[in-house]
Amino acid sequence: MMVPNGYSDVPAGKVAAVVTHLEMTARPARRPDPAGAWSLRRVEMPPLDWFRNLYRRVGEEWLWFSRIPMPDAELAARLHSPQLEVYALIDDGHDEGLLELDFREPGQCEIGMFGVTAKLVGTGAGRWLMNRALDIAWSRPIERLWLHTCTFDHPAALPFYQRSGFRAFRRQIEIADDPRLDGTAPRDVAQHVPVIE
């Protein structure tokens, strides 16, 4: 359905975001790694509690909520698929970044999750993690790497992805139940998105 020009009401109890899909069809020139003592660890068969905890710490302030209420069986089927790889960025011995690479579609890779905790925002860890993501994804026989971001994400996310070599190809509007109203997310997160009941 196409949204008409002008204003469209979003019902109380809902949130709305503009989602931008981005892709690259060839490996870009590698950007320099920032200075930092980070490392990357592949997490085989990620435990669901571990994943949800890191997912919250990385994304809760940006209203990442889709994986929190997902039934365990559905989340496990996704995370434990042999074509899906989950990585943690390690900072000072702690998991502080999340990378999910989805190779389930032949010839493609989707960056399903990407981000670092608030502790590392602005340190260069995101650039370091993206360099690893590009290295891993383009070491496989793919023709396309893609992801999406939205207006709930950190304001620097979209330009960061574009500087990384992605180009926008699709825009959508996503409307969902506000996760702060049913306890999926704490009431006080994402102050940049007001709660309207």
Rank of each mutant, 00 (worst) to 15 (best):
M1S: 09
M1A: 10
M2F: 03
M2T: 08
M2N: 05
V3A: 04
Y7M: 12
Y7D: 13
S8N: 12
D9Q: 15
D9H: 13
V10S: 10
P11Q: 14
G13H: 07
K14P: 01
K14Y: 13
V15N: 01
A17I: 09
A17S: 13
A17D: 02
H21P: 00
E23K: 15
E23T: 08
M24H: 09
M24R: 13
R27L: 12
A29S: 13
P32Y: 07
A37H: 15
A37R: 12
S39G: 15
E44R: 13
P47V: 00
L48W: 01
D49F: 04
D49S: 12
W50Q: 05
L54F: 02
L54S: 02
L54G: 01
L54M: 12
Y55T: 00
V58Q: 02
G59I: 04
L63C: 05
L63Y: 01
W64R: 03
S66L: 09
R67T: 00
P69I: 01
P69S: 08
M70L: 14
M70H: 00
P71G: 07
P71W: 07
D72M: 04
D72W: 04
E74M: 11
L75E: 01
A77I: 00
R78S: 01
R78T: 00
Q83K: 11
E85V: 03
E85D: 06
Y87E: 02
Y87R: 01
A88L: 01
A88W: 00
I90D: 05
D91V: 05
D91W: 15
D92H: 12
L101V: 13
F103R: 02
E105H: 11
Q108D: 10
Q108Y: 03
E110S: 06
E110N: 01
G112C: 01
M113N: 01
F114W: 06
F114T: 00
G115M: 08
V116H: 05
V116M: 11
A118T: 09
A118C: 05
K119L: 15
G122L: 08
A125D: 06
G126W: 04
R127P: 03
W128R: 08
W128N: 05
M130V: 07
R132D: 10
A133N: 05
A133L: 13
A133G: 13
A133S: 13
L134M: 15
I136L: 14
S139T: 10
R144V: 05
R144H: 11
W146S: 03
H148G: 03
T149Q: 04
C150G: 06
T151F: 11
T151M: 08
D153E: 08
H154M: 07
P155L: 03
A156K: 15
A156E: 09
A157I: 07
P159R: 06
G165D: 12
F166L: 15
A168P: 12
R170A: 15
I173Q: 05
I173C: 04
I173L: 14
D178I: 08
R180E: 02
R180W: 07
R180V: 02
R180D: 03
G183W: 06
G183M: 10
P186W: 08
R187L: 14
R187C: 09
R187S: 14
D188A: 14
D188E: 14
D188K: 12
D188C: 12
V189M: 11
V189R: 10
H192L: 03
V193S: 02
P194Q: 11
P194A: 11
V195I: 15
